[in-house]
């Protein structure tokens, strides 16, 4: 099988500069195509910048926005993953990643987990997605998309792999922090991400693609270090930290089959067991009032309401 060439667009978006960023995406899609890439991946909120705050509403696009459709039109012979602020018909704002291919918006993933702690304040400005699906790409592989914090929750890569993904793609705007000499690459954040990506790729026996932005928004700097990890958990490619660039990497899609034959972890997964035990855990958490009584606990017991009534 011919290797798939992936281009990682480790760019520094202009905060709030939607038009400028759209133009840059168009140029880089062209560059990726010229370089022979079948897939080009852009970072989280690459079309808008990250630290938007109240600007989010001003740079939001609906899925059928002509500007997004225009960008999609550039993908007749290449697939692209881009990320933007998506406004739903009922005017909720999401941090979304879209797969553009064959000239159209094929699929949209809305960020599921919005960090609102430490330096993050995403839940204040955005709504959380509530769907986790995979999508068949024209590349002949099934893709799973995730946005940054989504990968700090194990269920996300696991579910995507069980749903058939052979390649899980995480687009990020990960702020560099926890500067200390004890870390492998100087930044605690970078060291953590490198561990996560290798672990997920190995446990799900999929390719893990990570595209993280560089540059700065206000006080925070984004560290780049985009990576492609093979289904054995070994890095195929690691981009430099902090340097803007379009990085090309070739992957053998046949590695997924080879790895899964030799190491049939996915075959041996027990989702039914997992689901059964999760139901029990949720029920018990609700009974002891430890759990969140919201959407995660649809079967919340009535606590003897019938007797009291």
């Amino acid at each position: 099988m011919k290797p798939l060439r992936i281009a990682l667009a480790q760019l520094a978006p202009r905060l709030g500069g939607l038009d400028e960023n759209l133009a840059r995406h168009r140029a880089l899609i062209g560059e990726a195509r010229t370089g022979g890439a079948g897939l080009v991946v852009f970072p989280e909120l690459g079309l808008t910048g990250y630290q938007l705050q109240d600007l989010a509403a001003e740079v939001a696009m609906t899925a059928d926005d002509p500007r997004l459709q225009g960008l999609a039109a550039e993908t007749r012979d290449i697939s692209a993953v881009v990320s933007f602020v998506e406004e739903s018909p009922d005017h909720r704002l999401f941090i979304s990643a879209a797969l553009l291919e064959d000239g159209e918006v094929r699929f949209i993933h809305r960020k599921l987990f919005l960090p609102t702690y430490g330096l993050f304040d995403e839940r204040r400005f955005f709504a959380a997605g509530d769907r986790l699906r995979t999508v068949d790409s024209r590349l002949g592989v099934r893709l799973g998309l995730a946005v940054c914090e989504d990968f700090w929750h194990m269920a996300v890569p696991e579910t995507l792999a069980l749903d058939g993904a052979q390649m899980i793609i995480n687009v990020s705007s990960s702020p560099g922090r926890d500067l200390a000499a004890v870390h492998e690459v100087g930044l605690g954040t970078a060291a953590s991400w490198r561990n996560l990506l290798r672990t997920y790729a190995q446990l799900t026996t999929t390719f893990a693609i990570f595209c993280n932005r560089v540059g700065m928004d206000e006080t925070i700097s984004f560290w780049g270090g985009s990576e492609v990890i093979g289904p054995s958990g070994e890095a195929v490619f690691s981009a430099p930290l902090f340097d803007e660039g379009l990085y090309f990497v070739d992957v053998e899609l046949g590695d997924v089959r080879r790895e899964r034959i030799g190491l049939p972890l996915l075959r041996d997964e027990r989702p039914e067991l997992h689901l059964r035990e999760l139901r029990r855990v949720l029920a018990e958490r609700t009974e002891t009032d430890l759990g969140d009584a919201g959407e995660t606990s649809p079967q919340r017991p009535d606590h003897g309401r019938a007797e009291r009534d």
Binding site: G176, L179, A180, A181, V182, H183, V185, G186, L187, G215, M216, T219, S221, L241, F242
Partner: peptide, 20 residues
């Protein structure tokens, strides 16, 4: 020892910060 930092990263970030 706990205050030891990677000075390459610190230098890179602070210089980029000034420029930005």
């Amino acid at each position: 020892p706990e205050l030891a930092i990677d000075t390459d990263v610190a230098r890179r970030v602070t210089v980029d910060f000034i420029r930005n």
